[in-house]
């Protein structure tokens, strides 16, 4: 029965060669795409070079004058717009998401939890154009007719507040998804120990669960922050797109991603414009990169590393 195997020595060699070849080529393959990040940064950086010959970096970042046709590219209004919108979104999303995650993990009956988790997935799947449309149909009129008058301000509704609310909803699934995983990973023994000492459930959550889960939750928030910072279409549709530094929540703003998306048409007709827009893209990329790295560091450095890196 064993004899026929021995005729295949040659065959054996081919198999092993195949394996070696696969190993080498897959390695090269992986290396190329592992380096993709640096490639993107490098390409964008090289293409933004022309604008640096015209304006200094602080000038680009802190000037408020945006007159592309005169060759003046001050990014401050856009940076401010991005910061405002992201800030508002996080201020809304963080408490709501934390409360929801805690409810889902600690209090909600299992049936309800199973019902809600696919709903959160649906929320994550809705395309951003659809969020944008909904924002225009629901949030913008709401701000124009109810929220702004409440503060005695008249607003068109296309505002930071609108952008912030839409963005907040868009990052709900990001925060909830990770927070739930993190909260679930808090050992039951730890909670039992606290309960056994006479703490109420809420005290246990406040002092034990939250403390233990904090790094993971911070990471989730930072991740959501970077997602919000780069979101384009939905924000662009509701935020008004006026290149001025906003003064209140009900002012329009013009975040960086919207700037890039709105001006693709003129990009090549005005000198330096493409370089300026790619500078905006690079800026966006570096900020998001920074947030991402921080968040992954927290996740991989803490006990949650197993969740991400096995």
């Amino acid at each position: 029965m064993t004899r026929f195997f021995q005729q295949f020595l040659n065959f054996e060699k081919i198999r092993i060669l195949k394996d070696r070849f696969a190993e080498k080529s897959l390695f090269v393959f992986m290396l190329i795409f592992g380096l993709a990040l640096f490639l993107i940064i490098l390409v964008l950086f090289l293409r933004t070079h022309p604008i640096h010959t015209m304006m200094t970096l602080p000038n680009l970042l802190f000037s408020t004058v945006w007159k592309p046709s005169k060759g003046l590219f001050g990014f401050l209004p856009f940076i401010a717009g991005s910061l405002w919108v992201t800030g508002v979104a996080m201020a809304i999303a963080i408490p709501i998401c934390l409360l929801t995650s805690l409810y889902l993990v600690e209090y909600a009956p299992a049936k309800l939890r199973e019902l809600i988790s696919p709903l959160i997935d649906i929320l994550a799947g809705i395309p951003s154009v659809v969020y944008g449309i909904w924002g225009v149909l629901a949030i913008v009129p709401f701000i124009k007719n109810y929220l702004a008058p409440l503060f005695g301000i008249s607003s068109t509704g296309y505002s930071i507040a609108a952008g912030g609310i839409v963005l907040a909803i868009m990052v709900f699934p990001v925060i909830i998804h990770i927070s739930v995983e993190i909260l679930k990973a808090v050992p039951k023994d730890m909670k039992d120990a606290s309960l056994a000492l006479g703490a109420t459930k809420w005290q246990t959550i406040k002092h034990v669960v939250m403390k233990r889960a904090m790094p993971g939750i911070v990471a989730a928030i930072v991740l959501a922050l970077s997602r919000a910072f780069g979101e384009t279409i939905a924000v662009l549709m509701v935020v008004g797109n006026v290149a001025r530094i906003p003064k209140s929540l009900f002012d329009p703003a013009y975040p960086l991603p919207a700037l890039i998306a709105n001006n693709y048409g003129e990009m090549l007709s005005i000198p330096m414009y493409d370089s300026a827009l790619l500078f905006a893209a690079l800026l966006l990329l570096l900020v998001v990169l920074y947030f991402n790295i921080i968040s992954r560091m927290i996740l991989s450095g803490s006990k949650w590393s197993s969740y991400y890196y096995g």
Partner: peptide, 27 residues
């Protein structure tokens, strides 16, 4: 190397699509 690759892909995941658009356009 595997750790680094996973990390890179995580970060790539987080890059906004508008940046991919701009990068694609440049390419």
């Amino acid at each position: 190397l595997a750790y680094f690759t996973r990390f890179t892909f995580d970060v790539l995941w987080g890059i906004p699509s508008i940046v991919y658009g701009a990068f694609g356009f440049t390419l």
